[in-house]
């Protein structure tokens, strides 16, 4: 399905990736390639390895890559630190965004944004210039300015946390964003705001991987490809109608593919 001729080089190439934590294999030979402008969706049962894949791409230190490669813009990033990956343009939107009591959201966003800007050889922003930038980005996710003076994610509702993730994505302008169940815990209105935010941020030069259980996010953001994961492997890849079929037939339907593989 991904063998079509592409005009540009891939942003992300995950090649036959196997990984484990505490000697427990989690990923067992995952391959996925994302080109500029593409939106990929990864679906699958709980515990199939979707979130692990996203964390490993982001460089979580608890996981060991036992085989395979992750290439970002053609360079192998297996041994890069999480911050180096982030600075170079990989963004992970967390399923459960972490609360950091005592660290102001505004300062956190400013330090993050400047880390990325430094990598891009852009001028770092002082507090005043950053205020201007963040004001503009807040519009994208329809967040109140008051959120900035609070501690990172502390006391935020589920929806507010997810919007804060998309705000960070808007500020960091990543080359590729992996959004892990960004739709979970959102009501219909919040889902639309988040989905519209993602669409505004993405463009023909960026790639997006959406990890989700539900069709409702994919109704808002139509993926080019849908991958079904099971037991640490991608067992089927199709176009957007695969998600619809999955919604209709359930994950039991995919068990047949496992038998086939």
């Amino acid at each position: 399905m991904q063998s079509k001729m592409k005009e540009s080089d891939p942003i992300l190439e995950v090649e036959n990736l196997s990984a484990s934590t505490d000697n427990l294999p989690i990923l067992k030979g995952v391959s996925i390639t994302v080109y500029p402008g593409e939106i990929h969706a990864i679906m699958g049962r709980n515990g199939c390895g979707k979130s692990t894949l996203s964390k490993i791409i982001a460089g979580h230190p608890s996981y060991n890559i036992t085989n395979g490669d992750i290439k970002f813009l053609g360079e192998n990033i297996n041994s890069l630190e999480p911050e180096e990956r982030a600075q170079s343009g990989i963004f992970l939107g967390f399923q459960y965004p972490i609360e950091i009591p005592g660290v102001s959201n505004l300062e956190f966003l400013r330090v993050s944004t400047n880390a990325r800007r430094k990598f891009l050889n852009k001028e770092e922003l002082d507090t005043f210039d950053f205020e201007e930038l963040v004001k503009e980005k807040l519009e994208i996710v329809k967040m109140d300015h008051a959120f900035l003076s609070r501690s990172v994610n502390q006391g935020f509702s589920g929806g507010e946390k997810k919007r804060n993730e998309i705000l960070q994505m808007a500020l960091l302008e990543p080359k590729i964003a992996i959004l892990d169940e960004t739709d979970s815990g959102l009501d219909i209105d919040a889902l639309r705001i988040v989905a519209s935010g993602i669409k505004k941020i993405s463009n023909a030069k960026t790639g997006i991987i959406l990890i989700t259980h539900y069709q409702r996010l994919l109704d808002e953001i139509k993926p080019n490809y849908v991958h079904v994961m099971s037991d640490g492997q991608i067992i089927k890849t199709g176009e957007s109608d695969l998600a619809l079929e999955l919604e209709e037939k359930g994950y039991e339907w995919t068990d047949n593919f496992i038998k086939e593989t």
């Binding site: 982001a58 460089g59 979580h60 230190p61 608890s62 630190e81 999480p82 911050e83 990956r85 982030a86 600075q87 963004f91 992970l92 967390f94 965004p97 972490i98 950091i100 956190f108 330090v111 993050s112 880390a115 990325r116 990598f119 960070q168 960091l172």
Partner: peptide, 13 residues
């Protein structure tokens, strides 16, 4: 550790 990882995924060393 999770707080640290979260910050690192935002480019903070």
């Amino acid at each position: 550790e999770e707080e640290l990882f979260y910050m690192r995924t935002r480019g903070i060393t």
